[in-house]
Design a protein around this nucleic acid. Structure first.
Lengths: 242, 242
DNA sequence: TAGTGGTCTAGACCACCCT
DNA sequence: GGGTGGTCTAGACCACTAA
């Protein structure tokens, strides 16, 4: 992590919360905290604002700043903090071996919808990539992705056996930081049943959407069909800051 | 909406983006914008920051601020902005009549898990409420909720025929602004099939989690089993601000 | 090197809660 | 009325990008 003031303060306060150094479940007021940490009140507000955004504290105008008891009691609920973008990361379960099988790999013309979603011109081509993901040799996800050629011109089947996100970050310094996802549910089709080893009455979860690079470029349109037992999406919604 | 500087500026810029008043897909630099709107650069940053958080613009240090082309091309993707907390709201589909059938309603003792999630004492009781929700007389959701008595002591079966969230807001000025949700998928059980009119091979989506009041009080533990055709969760994930 | 967004500060004043 | 978080400002300096 960078040594930005607000990040340092944020992490320190977070640590103190976890270590139960505020047993009254309440933080000192912002002005005292600024004093303690020798930072401006603005920086302190920024740090506290981030913690509030993560659901770790609640700020109540006129009353004070309070620790979310559930954060201490049940930290597992919070473990997905900011890591529910990448399926890649989300499915990196500890102690499980992840592998990828390349099912299909071709270059195709874009149709209207793709053109719009990936913001392409008529002349642009995209990779169509279909992959099967496994955890400990158990298939759990069929992924169909479309990626503009011009974003990753050097793509080879070999690369596709591991994480595309990591590849992009390592080779081009580009990071995937945003996505729009739509989550739905469907009965499994014959292809699902065969590839994911599902019984006919067993369903799949579907996550489809668009991933963006940090400069705003749409990077991939993806459709994921997920074995229902592996389908688990955690989300923390916070409307208070709108 | 309040007449806060940063909100006014934010909404105005948003309007201009929608009206295509920045055809170069790029905003003026922050300093010029501050000048234009006669606000401080900090306030302008705040306004732009919110737009970035919503995925409407991308800020690129050293380069400028750019409009997300997809926001213009495909605004339907963005329509769930900040409204995916409440199932209540999420399912308020235009032109459809929502109704609620009360299936079960009792006061029970808390078990260990509930006690933890709702942050209760041994002596506390909760309502157990089971409701069926319908859209145009089509059942689509079975909802089982647990609510501490002390939060809503006046609850009656009659109230439960409409939105609890609205009831709380209207009567006690309390708003539900946060939630932790876990989304999973399951084959339908016999109860689902009967109540939601599902065939045996048709699945349900499950959303379960905890809803909080804006002061941090856990308000409800809820489990929702959703007809798969009605199950649609849109989410915008943005890791760049972490 | 000029232009742009990011960080940080110090301080004024407002809005809300509680006693 | 005293304490707390929220808004807003003006300005300094830093970090990155692109020509």
């Amino acid at each position: 992590m960078a040594d930005l003031v607000y990040r340092v303060v944020m992490h320190d306060i977070k640590k103190k919360i976890i270590n139960n150094e505020y047993p009254e479940m309440r933080l000192p007021d912002e002005r005292s905290l600024s004093e303690q940490y020798q930072v401006s009140r603005s920086s302190m507000k920024r740090a506290l604002g981030l913690l509030a955004q993560q659901g770790i504290i609640f700020k109540k105008r006129g009353s004070g700043t309070f620790i979310n008891p559930l954060y201490l009691k049940n930290q597992s609920l919070f473990k997905y903090e900011g890591s529910n973008l990448g399926i890649t990361d989300s499915f990196k379960m500890p102690g499980k071996k992840q592998s990828i099988e390349l099912l299909d790999y071709q270059v195709v013309k874009t149709d209207e919808e793709l053109k719009q979603d990936l913001f392409l011109k008529d002349s642009d081509f995209v990779y169509k990539i279909k992959r099967l993901r496994l955890l400990d040799d158990q298939p759990f996800l069929i992924e169909t992705g479309y990626i503009p050629i011009k974003i990753a011109p050097e793509l080879t089947p070999d690369i596709l056996k591991s994480s595309l996100f990591n590849y992009l970050e390592d080779t081009q310094g580009k990071t995937v930081t945003r996505s729009f996802l739509t989550i739905t549910v469907e009965p499994s089709n014959l292809d699902d049943q065969a590839k994911l080893m599902l019984a006919p009455n067993e369903p799949v979860g579907i996550m489809s959407g668009i991933f963006f690079l940090d400069d705003g470029t749409p990077f991939e349109v993806s459709n994921m069909r997920i074995h229902y037992k592996y389908m688990k999406y955690n989300t923390f919604v916070n409307l208070s800051q709108e």
